[in-house]
């Protein structure tokens, strides 16, 4: 078992996921790999605040 396969098995065991991943998984995963590569190569500073920070309100808002 290669390292990637082992990681996937661990993840699926950890989350108690079924073995079968569905008919369209391979195509979507190929696109996902390309997207992962694209965002990590993006010319965007790693000091950028990620979107999705808490939106806090004072107590009486």
């Amino acid at each position: 078992m290669d390292r990637d396969t082992s990681r996937v098995v661990e993840l699926r065991t950890l989350l108690a996921l079924p073995d079968e991943r569905g008919a369209l998984f391979d195509d979507e995963m190929a696109r996902t790999r390309r997207r992962i590569d694209a965002v990590h190569r993006a010319a965007v500073s790693h000091n950028t605040e990620p979107a999705g920070a808490p939106r806090l309100q004072p107590r009486d808002a």
Binding site: V39, H40, A42, V44, S45, H46, T48, E49, P50, A51, G52
Partner: peptide, 8 residues
Amino acid sequence: RAQQVRTH
């Protein structure tokens, strides 16, 4: 990282 791209 994707959320950083979003902010940018």
